[in-house]
Amino acid sequence: MHVAQTKDTLSDIYLASLKIRNTVFVKEQGVPLALEVDENEALAVHFVLYDDQNQSVATLRFLPIDAKTMKLQRMAVPKDYRGHGCGRILIEGAEAFAKAHHIEKITLGAQLTAQDFYQKLGYQAEGEVFLDADMPHIKMTKTL
C-alpha cells in the first residue's frame, strides 16, 4: 500500500478522493453533495491510500489552519475496506507529511462513531458534541 497526495483538483489523486467521498458521505451517509464538496477543496492537501493493485481504498484531506496547524477532514474508507487498517495507514502517511512540513498540531471533527478509532491513534477529545451535516461530532486534537 502507498499514500499519495495532491493539491491539484484536476489530478487523478483528487478525482479518486472525490469518488471515495461520494460513496461514503453522499451515498452511504446521505450528506448533501453541496455540503460535502466545498469552497476549501483547492486550499486543502488531498490524500489517497492505494492498495497493492493500485485501487484507491481510503481518503482524507488536510486544510491548513495556520503555519503550524492542519485540520484533518473528509476521512473516508468504503465499507469493503473498513477493519483492515486502511484508515490507520492513511493517517500515519498524512501525519508523516505534516511532520515533514513542520506542522505541530492536527485537529479534526470526528463523527462520534469514529471517536475510538482516532483515540487509538493519539487524538484527544475536546469540548462538547456538535452537529455537522446533522451528525454528532466531537473536536479532537493531536500534537505531533
Rank of each mutant, 00 (worst) to 15 (best):
V77G: 01
K142A: 03
A114V: 06
E104A: 08
Y118T: 03
H84Y: 07
A125G: 14
K19M: 09
K71P: 06
K99Y: 10
I20F: 12
A34T: 03
D12H: 13
H46F: 03
T9S: 09
N40L: 15
A67N: 06
I138R: 14
P136M: 03
K99T: 09
P78F: 02
L121K: 11
T141W: 04
K120Y: 07
D52G: 06
K19G: 05
K105I: 05
V129R: 09
L63Y: 12
Q111N: 02
K71S: 09
F62A: 15
I138A: 15
K120M: 11
Y118K: 08
H102Y: 08
Y14K: 07
A34G: 13
L108M: 08
L131A: 11
A58G: 05
V31Y: 00
I138N: 14
V48H: 10
G85D: 02
M75P: 02
L63E: 15
M75R: 04
T9I: 15
H137P: 10
L63F: 13
L33S: 10
H102C: 12
E128N: 15
Q29S: 01
S17C: 14
Y123L: 02
S17D: 02
V48E: 00
I65F: 12
T6G: 14
V26S: 04
G30M: 02
H84R: 15
R61K: 14
Y14F: 14
F47C: 05
A34Q: 09
I13V: 13
M140Y: 04
E126N: 10
L121D: 06
A58R: 10
L33W: 11
D12E: 15
F47D: 10
L90K: 01
V57M: 12
I91H: 02
E36H: 00
A110M: 05
E95V: 12
G85S: 03
L90F: 03
K71R: 15
D8T: 13
E36V: 05
R82H: 02
T59E: 14
L35S: 12
A76P: 03
L18T: 06
K120R: 14
Q29Y: 04
F117Q: 07
D51R: 01
T141F: 08
K99Q: 13
E41H: 15
V26K: 00
M135I: 14
T59K: 14
D52V: 05
L33T: 00
K68N: 12
T59D: 11
M1P: 05
